[in-house]
Amino acid sequence: MTEQERDVLSKVPAVTLGFWIIKILATTLGETAGDTVTMTMKLGYLAGTAIFMTVLALLVWRQIAARRFHPFLYWATIVASTTAGTALADFATRSLGIGYTGGSLLLLACVLASLAAWRWTTGSISSDAISTPRAEAFYWLTITFSQTLGTALGDWTADTGGLGYVGAALVFGALLAVVAGLYFWTRVNRVLLFWAAFILTRPLGATVGDFLDKPVDHGGLAFSRPLASAVLAAVIIVLILVLPQRAGRHPGEAA
């Protein structure tokens, strides 16, 4: 298999610093865009969840059907997953009445169950081992659960934990720094660190998004949700165009 053929088969991006920058911005956009539909437009959490899950399902289908890596398609699917996660987490923790703690525990169980089923079915949960539609389906399912979990964790830390949006953002930023330190200075399993970082970027983005659009008397800046979402989307598009976007390493590359 040639290098060109391997890149065609790999449909997820290489995990670089640029990947994490865009990921954090995408999760922040997911929070402001989700709140725009469910709160500003007053459609509610159930309707918002239905809308975003439909969009996510269509994008995941398109991503799996694609024959090569498309940066805009990939990141649109990420944004859809984090937006759906915002609405789904709010529906679970508020409309179902299980609270942030119950919602976080439930969603953590979903993430772990998805990873376990993925590992049992395909033999690997590495983002470098996504070479079949089944592995891709598990990849996006796990991502959606992790985005939803991250939303609940962010709300739990900021509200129930009493840290506020800025305090919660600092906590998750510090935890991400710890994960980065483990990556650079230890031999801790890289797959484990990837998923830990992937989950932690979501509550970081959620708390930053809440800080931007929540009322001043709730600890936010009261920015317009639609405007904040538009600015974040524009920044993400620019970064996708400016930062190197290449397909990640395909498992066949090792051979």
Rank of each mutant, 00 (worst) to 15 (best):
I125R: 02
L46Q: 13
I125M: 09
S127D: 06
T93H: 03
A47N: 13
A47V: 11
L96T: 08
D90M: 11
G18N: 07
I78H: 03
L88V: 13
M53L: 15
T82N: 05
V60W: 03
T86Q: 05
Y100R: 07
L43Q: 09
Y74T: 06
W118R: 04
S124R: 10
A84E: 02
D35A: 15
T49R: 04
D90A: 11
W120F: 08
I21G: 08
R94G: 07
L25C: 04
I64Y: 13
W120H: 06
T28Y: 01
L112A: 06
T28F: 00
A26I: 04
I24H: 01
L43N: 07
I78A: 08
L106V: 07
A113I: 09
T49N: 02
E31A: 05
W20Y: 12
T40P: 11
V79C: 07
F52D: 00
G123I: 09
W75R: 05
L73I: 07
L43Y: 10
T101N: 13
A65P: 08
F91Y: 15
H70E: 15
I24Q: 02
L108K: 01
T82Y: 04
A66G: 13
R67H: 09
A33H: 06
S114A: 14
A57Y: 08
T93M: 14
T82C: 07
W20V: 10
I22P: 01
S114P: 03
S126T: 06
L43K: 10
G99K: 08
A47Q: 11
R68Y: 11
L105Q: 00
V111S: 00
A87K: 03
V37L: 13
L59S: 05
A109N: 01
F19S: 11
R62S: 14
V60I: 10
L73D: 01
G85D: 05
G99T: 10
E31S: 05
D35F: 13
L105E: 00
D35M: 13
F52R: 00
R67I: 04
V55G: 10
S127H: 12
A80H: 02
I64S: 10
A26Y: 01
R68N: 12
A87N: 07
M39A: 15
L25N: 04
D35C: 14
R68W: 12
I78F: 07
G48Q: 03
